[in-house]
Computed example of a mutant assay.
Amino acid sequence: MKRFLELVKDCLHNVKEHMPWDLEERLKENPDILLVDVREPYEYEAMHIEGSLLVPRGILESACEWDYEETEPELV
């Protein structure tokens, strides 16, 4: 079984990291981008990017699968 750091290392080949200061330009290029905010609800309520989808990190995996209470259709 792979350890956490090995899983993260494997994912880095498929997941691109984007810096906050590049977001405005990326949204201009593609206004239909799905922006997922993985913070907690109280953090999202305090401040968030308009149009972002709140999916707290603790439920992200189940939000991406069908048949869970937390399922977010846009992520499936």
Rank of each mutant, 00 (worst) to 15 (best):
K9P: 02
C64I: 00
S62R: 03
D67S: 11
E6P: 07
E72Y: 03
R39P: 00
G51V: 07
V8R: 08
K28L: 15
V38N: 02
G51N: 09
L54T: 05
E45A: 11
C64V: 02
G51L: 06
N14V: 05
M19K: 15
D10E: 14
E24L: 14
E43W: 07
C64Y: 00
M1R: 10
D67M: 05
E61R: 03
E25C: 10
E45R: 14
E24W: 13
E65V: 01
Y42P: 00
L12W: 05
L12C: 10
M19Y: 14
H18M: 03
E45C: 05
R26K: 15
Y42L: 08
S62W: 02
R3F: 11
W66A: 09
L12A: 11
V36H: 00
K28C: 15
C64F: 00
E72Q: 12
E43C: 09
L5E: 15
P31M: 10
K9W: 10
D10P: 01
D37Q: 04
E70V: 00
P56G: 05
C64K: 01
V76A: 06
L75G: 04
P73F: 03
L7Q: 12
D10N: 10
G58I: 07
E50C: 06
H48N: 14
P56I: 02
E17T: 13
V15D: 04
E61V: 03
N14H: 07
L53Q: 05
V8S: 07
P56Y: 02
S62G: 04
Y42S: 07
G58N: 11
V38W: 02
D22H: 14
R3V: 12
L27E: 07
W21T: 14
L54Q: 06
R39G: 00
D67K: 04
E74N: 10
N14K: 04
V55R: 00
M19V: 12
P31N: 12
S62Y: 02
L35D: 05
D22I: 10
L7R: 12
W21Q: 15
A63S: 14
W66F: 09
Y44G: 01
E61G: 03
K28H: 15
E43P: 01
L27N: 08
A46C: 08
E24C: 13
L35T: 08
K28P: 12
L60D: 00
V36W: 00
I33T: 15
E43S: 07
R39F: 02
W21C: 11
M1N: 05
K28N: 15
L35C: 07
N14W: 04
E69Q: 11
N30W: 04
E40I: 02
L23H: 13
E65P: 01
P20D: 10
H13A: 12
E65I: 01
N14C: 04
P41N: 07
E29W: 11
I49A: 06
E50P: 06
H13L: 11
P41C: 04
L12T: 14
C11T: 10
K2D: 13
A63V: 02
M1K: 11
P56L: 03
I49M: 06
L5D: 14
L23D: 12
I49Q: 06
L60A: 01
D67V: 03
M1Y: 09
F4G: 04
V55F: 00
E43A: 12
